[in-house]
Design a protein around this nucleic acid. Structure first.
Lengths: 231, 231
DNA sequence: CGAAGCTTTGACCTTGATCAATACGAGTGG
DNA sequence: CCACTCGTATTGATCAAGGTCAAAGCTTCG
């Protein structure tokens, strides 16, 4: 295994305030992992043994109901910590982490969590800020689900994906990870049929372009209108 | 102002591991507050200046949409910390805290948060455990909203209230705080009409008893069945 | 080429929202 | 004490959003 480069952690919030030497220590304690697309990094209910940092690829955090339906709780982009149950006193993972495409991640054993918190100034604060953001996002989802129509929820889901993973391409902004109608319906508590119908409509109206597992937003402002952001 | 008694904080998780003298310090730094029912302790968007511990009464954590609809994100029972945005790096409150009935709370200025974390062993860990529980609860709500029918969501909402605030009375378990049809609809993203119809039906079937702003569950097991806990 | 996964589209039906009317209880002021 | 009002609750009638059922087409891949 080759040595990991220190620049990997340079810009990432929890590590931002650290010395070069400290980052070296952290990297030396890390295990680097590769995953194919569509596999589980960890599963709901498993004991929390490690925490992760996603370096490349995209991860869907998924919960499954007793009835077998699944809903996507969260997406993780490169540079984000995930599986941080340790930070909030969980002993088992509350959800499953599925890779959406090929992924590279670092992993540390759980027992290092308190060590990092103890030794690295700002690590705890920055991490809890991330937790805070996710709580905020979850809160928004709850409000959305409770008050908005399916069309608005789907518009919001797409906008969220765009801001999190979007990249500019000719003619619009493309979502940087593979995404199916089914995925979108799992994010919004809807059905793939409804999502398909809506996307077809939007494509007819020139708001999006979509191919198999790919969506490009050509008129973001109009999507924002549709999302019900109180025009 | 009379001195606060140390027993107040005795059994409360974040303070559980502390010495008597430490509890004294904490209490001396606290401000005791009284609120009538139906008022805001703090409001969405306000800067986070204090954190609170609810001693008596009940609090609804509420978010309001641009369109004026409101949804209830969380209920706080006596003994719980709330308004702890400081813990997760928030600078403004993400929601409004409304008293459901008359309340008594302690408040500390925000700058004491890091002091508590620093000086009192276990304070941080226990608090983050609380955060973790709330995150879990929010997650469940999202899944519920995405996959369940209104009837199941309302059953679940009532069951949650029962476990959080229920007290045994003759003939069943009574929810320990005032709760209207409208409140229930705000918790489930439904309407007071639908809630009323369902409760009427349940009352006819002998599952609940309800008066004005009061609900008593007479057949909890049947409510659990209805809640869709995979029978 | 067949199979599996993704997408589209039409027809139909159920859930629960909306509209509307009424009633009841509790607090307030005359 | 009564009239008024406001917040709460009930119930019926109607309607539409979106789920379900069904069928078929298109890609990609082994």
């Amino acid at each position: 295994m080759h040595k990991l480069d220190e620049s990997l952690l340079a810009g990432i919030p929890p590590f931002r305030k650290l010395e070069r030497a400290q980052i070296r220590e952290i990297l030396d304690a890390a295990q680097a992992l590769r995953f194919d697309g569509g596999v589980a990094v960890f599963s709901e209910g498993m004991p929390v043994e490690r925490f992760f940092l996603l370096l490349d690829g995209h991860i869907r955090v998924v919960r499954t109901t007793p009835g077998g339906e699944q809903i996507i709780a969260l997406h993780i982009s490169p540079g984000q910590l995930f599986g941080i149950g340790a930070a909030i006193g969980r002993t088992t993972y509350p959800a499953t982490a599925m890779t959406a495409d090929d992924c590279v991640a670092l992993a540390w054993p759980n027992r290092l969590w308190p060590v990092f918190v103890e030794n690295y100034e700002g690590f705890a604060t920055e991490t809890y800020k991330v937790v805070g953001e996710r709580v905020g996002e979850m809160n928004n989802r709850i409000v959305e689900m409770a008050t908005q129509q399916v069309e608005q929820r789907i518009a919001n889901a797409i906008l969220r994906l765009v801001t999190q993973t979007g990249r500019k391409v000719e003619g619009g902004i493309e979502i940087g990870m593979p995404i199916t109608r089914q995925n979108l319906s799992d994010m919004t508590g809807s059905t793939l049929h409804t999502v398909s119908r809506l996307l077809s409509g939007w494509e007819r109206d020139g708001i999006v372009l979509s191919e198999r597992r790919k969506i490009t937003v050509t008129a973001p402002h109009r999507l924002v209108m549709l999302s019900g952001a109180a025009g």
